[in-house]
Amino acid sequence: MAAASHRRATEDPLWAKVLVIGTVMAFLALVLILPLAAVFAEALRKGLDAALLAINNADALAAVKLTLITAAIAVPFNAAFGLCASWAIAKHDFKGKPLLITLIDLPFSVSPVVAGLIYVLIFGLQGWFGDYLVDNDIKIIFAVPGIVLATVFVTFPFVARELIPLMQEQGTAEEEAAVSMGASGLTTFWRVTAPNVRWGLMYGVLLCNARAMGEFGAVSVVSGHIRGLTNTMPLHVEILYNEYDFVGAFAVAALLCLLAVVTLVLKTALEIVQPGVRGRGGH
């Protein structure tokens, strides 16, 4: 391999490698790294104290709390759904399976704004249940339940699409063996299936959580933007930005960037611990 003439036929010449890697690095620096750097630079423009002050106030903390509450409901819900759906789909045979998988994937093809709109049409004042909800003094739209619903919708497929291909790949032999030896369905799930899919489940939950905490469009439609009450972190970023409080907006944005970085680190760690966890479901 010492001389260039000995390079394998499928290996590109050095100049091509340098050109491709250089182009890719320049492109990624421009498209991905620069925005990330800009967030931290803008947040720290007036020093660390100003940035910390923007995070450590009642409105910002209320937004952080609402974001955490929303994710704490939406992510376990979708994880439970994903486990249910993948058990039914991957471990059993029935007609119309591709259609069902497509329907579960549907929320990924729907604009976030439309995802918010559908719940306004159902639970809003003029919606299907508008009169009933007003009469009984139940608030869903412009309140926390609407925010949770919209978040559940946009993150709906994450866990399921991770687990379905994984469980299909693993087949049913181990579960059948367990059942034939007398294990109950639940025991089979906990002792056989769950250990096999735990990395895939974590991977799906990780991506689901990142989207749940970061969702903007769908939540923006149903939230009503009431400070301290129905403002999630991304919505708080928008309000501050539109008020020209750039340090405040970018300080909260930097917090969300940290979330993204932690997500990517954990995701990379999962891929190292369990090679092949990526790419089954795409996304």
């Binding site: 990624l28 925005p35 989207r211 970061g214 903007f216 991304p234 930005y241 944005a253 993204a260 990517l264």
Partner: peptide
Amino acid sequence: ALVDLPFALPTAVAGIA
């Protein structure tokens, strides 16, 4: 890892950046 940043970064953050 960086390639997945757009999946992990909230869209509003990307927007203002």
